[in-house]
């Protein structure tokens, strides 16, 4: 880390709830000096056209993520468990809406 990086405002991830009843969805990131400023800038940058009714911000360095290198090992085991889906089960036509 050099001096220029240290003088940068930290990075925040922005999550916006589109309308009440829906979940917050990640929509991008921005730099801000503190939490209050992050919320305010998120409003200006990501909800200029009434895209939001609620905003979450979280410091990017606080997010823990799965390792993309282990994607296959992590997620592929679910591939052969088709019996977890309703379409796996064949029912008589008259009852197929069950």
């Amino acid at each position: 880390m050099n001096e220029t990086v240290k003088s940068e405002w930290p990075l925040w991830e922005v999550f916006v709830r589109n309308k009440s009843g829906l979940d917050h969805k990640h929509c991008g990131s921005l730099h801000a000096a503190d939490p209050k400023m992050a919320i305010q800038l998120a409003r200006d940058v990501y909800t200029r056209r009434q895209e939001g009714t609620s905003i979450w911000v979280v410091r990017s360095d606080q997010i823990v993520a799965s390792d993309p290198g282990e994607k296959a090992m992590y997620f592929d085991p679910m591939e052969d468990k088709v019996y977890r889906h309703p379409t796996f089960y064949e029912l008589p036509k008259s009852l197929d809406h069950m």
Partner: peptide
């Protein structure tokens, strides 16, 4: 201004800082 910010953020994901 907003478009510039979306794009800077996208560029930063590649490991180059905003100040750079």
């Amino acid at each position: 201004a907003g478009h510039g910010l979306y794009l800077y953020a996208a560029a930063e994901t590649l490991g180059t800082s905003r100040d750079q």
